[in-house]
Simulated assay, not measured.
Amino acid sequence: MTLRLSTVILPVHRWHEGGRAAWQRAEELGFHAGYTYDHLSWRSFRERTWFGALPTLTAAATATERLRLGTLVTSPNFRHPVTLAKELLSLDDISGGRVTLGIGAGGNGFDATALGQEAWTPRERADRFAEFVPLLDRLLTEQSVTQHGDFYTADDVRTIPGCVQRPRLPFAVAATGPRGLKLAARHGQAWVTTGDPKLYEEGTPEQSLAAIRGQIEKLGKACAEIGRDATELDKILLAGFTPERNTVLDSHDAFVDFAGRHQELGVTEIVIHWPIPDSVFAADQAVFEKIATEAVAQLG
């Protein structure tokens, strides 16, 4: 099974002061895709420069030619399916059909309350996500959509001419719970995990591998319930949130070992963070670029 290697380029640089150069360098290094977080701000970057995801990806689309582009991930926290569909439709056109939408239920960070609402409970997030994804699917595949749901309404919405990618741009659904996995099975072209968050602080690499193996097995069962072959879905691991997060990018050999163990589980794409000095994503740029150019070839 061929493993793809992608990167996350956080929107922390002014476009003309390093932003454009990073996306272009990602393409030069041969990454399969360049993703970015779709947040209003994020954790330790709360008081630092942070630009919008979709304008950044649009700029990246005009600065690159082959690199796939996407969000890891968009959520309902501050998005509405109707406006998001129109923006994705435009981005897919501008990029020439190179967009993947990473999408998840969201969490309790700043995004959850920035628009003045109370943070939703996990159940409320799951309820909204269960309505958000199917409606967005319809909006990107049908030219006229009317739907009145519990949370989201589309009233005779037009999305002409549709996506460049047919029937629509791919969804990479981030999920670990049963309801989210069912959405991934039904609507996803890929599934996204960061591992088990309970193991982030004190878990072991072995426990993390076992947890991801279990997640993939549950995804397979969700696919089987609707008669879908789980091998149709790419399995994407966003690295940086597993117990070995602090050593994965220490050396080429460390990454190859990490990637190989996850490839054996069935992971088809690993996403690593573009180095950001003085942050949780600090890493040696030279080592990072060696990983980009040599690791996948070694894994086969």
Rank of each mutant, 00 (worst) to 15 (best):
4 R>A: 05
5 L>M: 03
6 S>E: 00
9 I>M: 08
18 G>F: 07
34 G>D: 11
37 Y>I: 10
39 H>W: 09
40 L>M: 15
40 L>N: 11
44 S>Q: 13
45 F>Q: 05
47 E>W: 03
48 R>M: 08
49 T>P: 05
52 G>Y: 13
52 G>T: 00
56 T>F: 01
62 T>E: 12
63 A>G: 02
67 L>C: 02
68 R>W: 06
68 R>K: 09
69 L>E: 03
69 L>R: 04
70 G>W: 02
71 T>E: 03
75 S>M: 05
76 P>I: 01
82 V>R: 13
90 S>L: 12
91 L>W: 10
91 L>Y: 10
100 T>S: 04
101 L>Y: 10
102 G>K: 03
103 I>Y: 04
103 I>Q: 01
106 G>E: 02
108 N>F: 12
109 G>H: 03
110 F>V: 05
115 L>N: 06
121 T>R: 14
123 R>Q: 14
123 R>K: 15
124 E>T: 11
127 D>H: 15
127 D>C: 08
131 E>T: 08
135 L>H: 01
138 R>L: 06
138 R>C: 02
140 L>K: 00
147 Q>S: 11
148 H>K: 14
150 D>L: 13
152 Y>C: 08
158 R>F: 14
165 Q>V: 01
168 R>H: 04
169 L>T: 00
171 F>G: 03
172 A>G: 05
174 A>G: 12
174 A>H: 07
175 A>I: 00
176 T>N: 14
180 G>W: 02
184 A>P: 09
185 A>E: 00
186 R>L: 09
188 G>W: 06
189 Q>W: 06
191 W>L: 01
191 W>V: 02
193 T>G: 09
198 K>P: 00
205 P>E: 14
206 E>Q: 15
212 I>C: 06
215 Q>R: 03
217 E>P: 06
219 L>K: 00
219 L>A: 01
224 A>M: 01
228 R>E: 06
231 T>Y: 09
233 L>A: 05
233 L>R: 06
234 D>Q: 11
236 I>N: 05
239 A>G: 05
240 G>P: 05
242 T>L: 11
244 E>I: 06
246 N>R: 15
249 L>V: 08
250 D>F: 15
255 F>M: 12
255 F>I: 09
260 G>Y: 11
270 I>T: 07
272 I>M: 11
273 H>T: 08
274 W>R: 01
274 W>G: 02
274 W>H: 05
277 P>H: 02
278 D>N: 13
281 F>C: 04
286 A>C: 15
290 K>V: 04
295 A>V: 00
296 V>S: 06
298 Q>K: 15
